[in-house]
Design a protein around this nucleic acid. Structure first.
Length: 456
DNA sequence: CTAGGGTTAG
């Protein structure tokens, strides 16, 4: 009895250490426990597995199974569910399926969480149809879906571009008496933010209040970000103040959101106050935080400071990600150092990063500096483009009054199935008309109309 | 124990 109680205590301590990334201390606690005669049980090992999967990787988590066997403990349902979640976190469908197989081999019957996680994995891999097949399987096997099942489904639909369907599902479920959780609202708000559906987001935000559900830190951060994205800085800051008054001390997520928004809108002094606060609290800064800070220096043209910070991040063992590289390239362009920027862009391509945004920064930078012909050359030699690539080029072509070429580019943008900005279209039409080639303007309008009909 | 938030261009 006494021993069982001790194991429970051991588990609580190991869990809190694992949650806070202190895996070495967790291992030490385990050894201390054994020395005192407190034996770890299957729960202890499951907690360790979750920790290793989260902070080291799936393989490290899976390795714990061997240690369990040495200790004479058999893995259970939770063990495999945790490993499936770990595999999903690092986008390994193969490992996730392996864990399911291994589980079945051992005669363990998968529960709703095994299916939830598998469904989540398919969604994360960009395979919504397979994910949906898992959902059907849940229903066919007569396993009761839980709240999380629907959250994963709604989130997966959103992340795979089926936001309308997700919203429809959400409303249907509500109609059937399903009470959405704050998580569900957070998921929908995040997805609508990407579509810049500010009004729809604020309606959801209101709905949360009407239903009497308490918003959490995630809800506030999301709503705040939505405001900033649609350039409603006042509203965004208001949400930030409300968040503070509700007792949500700002965490790294909120800090990064607000600092990035303040830097973007030129409010550097308030941004610095926020950064100072962030550092005072003593957060363990991660690569996203460093990216935010590095970007802040680049925006002010302080390359030296930015590079120093980059060194600090690397010396702390953090890996630069796609954002770091993109921020660097953008910063170099803003400082007029195009040759180094281009070298870095090529470096990124070699490392097989997705360079669309970085390439847009480069092209946009060239345009802004007046090197439009070079920008066009880069554009033609690359197949990475989206509507904002076209927008940058069209914008600066208009400034140089090269409206015919701008018109051509806009048309090929539409013909590739991408949307164009109304303002760009207006700009080109006005330009063509002003140049006295009214026929060109009329022809362009017609061509746009036809292209839109054919491609939307 | 599993589901939701932050950073890049326009």
């Amino acid at each position: 009895m006494c021993l069982r109680l001790s194991t429970k205590l051991l588990n609580i301590s190991v869990a809190s250490l694992c949650r806070t990334k202190q895996l070495e201390k967790a291992e030490a606690a385990l050894i201390d426990g054994i020395r005192l005669g407190v034996l770890p049980d299957v729960v202890t090992y499951n907690i360790l597995i979750t920790g290793y999967c989260q902070f080291v990787g799936f393989d490290a988590g899976y390795h714990v199974i061997h240690r369990m066997k040495e200790a004479g403990i058999s893995p259970n349902l939770v063990t495999y569910n945790s490993l499936m979640a770990g595999a999903t976190r690092q986008h390994s469908l193969a490992c996730c399926l392996d864990m399911l197989d291994e589980m079945l081999d051992r005669g363990i019957v998968p529960d709703i969480w095994s299916y939830n996680t598998l469904m989540h994995c398919f969604f994360r891999m960009g395979r919504p149809y397979d994910a949906y097949r898992i959902f059907s399987e849940i229903l066919l096997k007569n396993i009761s879906p839980c709240q999380a099942t629907y959250n994963i489904l709604i989130n997966g639909l959103c992340k795979n571009g089926y936001i309308k369907n997700a919203l429809m599902l959400f409303r249907n479920l509500q109609h059937q008496g399903y009470v959405p959780q704050i998580v569900t609202y957070n998921i929908l708000m995040t997805s609508l933010c990407k579509l810049r559906r500010w009004k729809a987001i604020m309606r959801l935000f209101e709905e949360i209040r009407e239903l009497g559900i308490a918003p959490n830190a995630i809800t506030y951060t999301t709503a705040m970000k939505c405001c900033f994205r649609s350039r409603r800085y006042k509203e965004g800051l208001q949400i930030f103040f409300e968040m503070k008054s509700r007792g949500y001390a700002y965490d790294l997520f909120a800090c990064c959101t607000i600092v990035a928004a303040l830097v973007k809108s030129g409010r550097r002094r308030i941004a610095d106050r926020c950064i100072a606060h962030m550092i005072k609290i003593g957060y363990d800064l991660d690569i996203v935080s460093y990216n935010t800070l590095i970007n802040r220096h680049f925006k002010e043209g302080k390359l030296e400071k930015a590079y120093n910070l980059l060194d600090v991040a690397e010396s702390r063992g953090l890996d630069c990600d796609i954002y770091t590289h993109t921020i660097l390239i953008d910063g170099l362009c803003k400082a007029g150092n195009f040759s180094v920027a281009e070298r870095h862009l090529n470096h990124m391509k070699m490392m097989r990063f997705n360079c669309l945004v970085a390439s847009n920064c480069f092209i946009n930078g060239l345009c802004k500096a007046g090197y439009i012909d070079y920008a066009l050359q880069v554009f033609k030699s690359s197949d990475m483009r989206d509507s904002s690539t076209y927008s940058s080029l069209v914008n600066s072509l208009c400034k140089q009054r090269r409206y015919l070429l701008a018109a051509q580019l806009l048309l090929s943008c539409i013909r590739s199935g991408m949307k164009i900005l109304k303002s760009d279209q207006k700009n080109v039409i006005q330009g063509l008309t002003r140049l006295g080639t009214k026929a060109d303007a009329e022809r362009f309008k017609l061509q746009v109309r036809i292209a839109k009909l054919l491609h939307y």
